[in-house]
């Protein structure tokens, strides 16, 4: 299925100037430094439409930073890159953000709010009806917990609520950080379904994990972050 850019006249949706054959994301010689500590160095990566990449790496190797970079939330200190047709650090980054979904390794939920209130906030900020947020919660199996405060939810439930946010947003670029931790078998299947949905719409996914087994079968290819660079990793069970 070719990549379908949302139409320019569709309210609340930003049209992209990205041609159909252009990659969803392209990073050329990217470096990211936090304070004076280099995190990524001279990193190259191409993420094509419909592609799912698994990113491996040890603790502190820069996997999460790579995701934040692709989410346009970190400015590269060197190198160039484009995400969904917009240059990183360029003027169009804010406009492209609603088409990106990031599920970090910690939940982005407001603990004092209920799961429904958290999702309603996202719906209101992105111009969607609250009903669609409720439907998303039902879809991830949290209809019964919709009125429970996020602070009293388990890690797995919070993860599912994050997935509901992804379902609601229908992103073209999905970034998942250690998504499988704390999820039961049903929820793991849900992750696969969400990833397949994004891929089916011509979008792309990046899954970060330090467990290669989790990514085998889901990702089209694997890369490993070593010394701040992305290196191809063979798809094998014993990839470690």
């Amino acid at each position: 299925m070719p990549h379908t850019a949302p139409s320019r006249d569709q309210p609340g949706v930003v049209a992209t100037t990205r041609p159909a054959d252009e990659p969803c994301a392209r990073l050329d010689g990217i470096a990211v430094t936090v304070g004076r500590t280099p995190i990524l160095r001279n990193l190259d990566l191409v993420l094509n439409a419909g592609e799912v990449i698994g990113v491996l790496g040890g603790n502190g190797s820069g996997k999460s930073t790579l995701l934040r970079l692709l989410a346009t939330l970190v400015r590269p200190s060197r190198g160039r890159g484009a995400v969904l047709g917009h240059e990183l650090g360029g003027p169009g980054t804010i406009a492209v953000r609603p088409r990106i979904a990031l599920v970090g390794h910690l939940p982005a939920l407001y603990p004092q709010l209920t799961l429904a209130e958290n999702l309603h906030l996202v719906a209101r900020l992105t111009g969607r009806e609250e009903r669609s947020a409720d439907r998303a919660l039902a879809l991830v199996g949290l209809a019964g917990a919709a009125h429970r405060r996020a602070e009293s939810c388990s890690q797995g439930m919070a993860r599912r609520a994050e997935l509901a946010r992804v379902v609601l947003a229908e992103p073209s670029l999905l970034l998942l950080d250690e998504i499988h931790s704390g999820l039961d078998r049903d929820a793991v299947e849900l992750v696969d379904e969400v990833v397949t949905g994004v891929r089916g719409r011509g979008g792309a996914c990046v899954l970060v994990s330090h467990e290669p087994d989790r990514l085998t079968g889901v990702a089209d290819r694997l890369v490993r972050i070593v010394d701040g660079r992305a290196r191809p990793e063979p798809q094998a069970v014993d990839a470690r």
Partner: peptide, 9 residues
């Protein structure tokens, strides 16, 4: 040459 953050682990 400064090691990247991950090199400390």
């Amino acid at each position: 040459y400064r090691p990247v953050a991950g090199a400390a682990v």
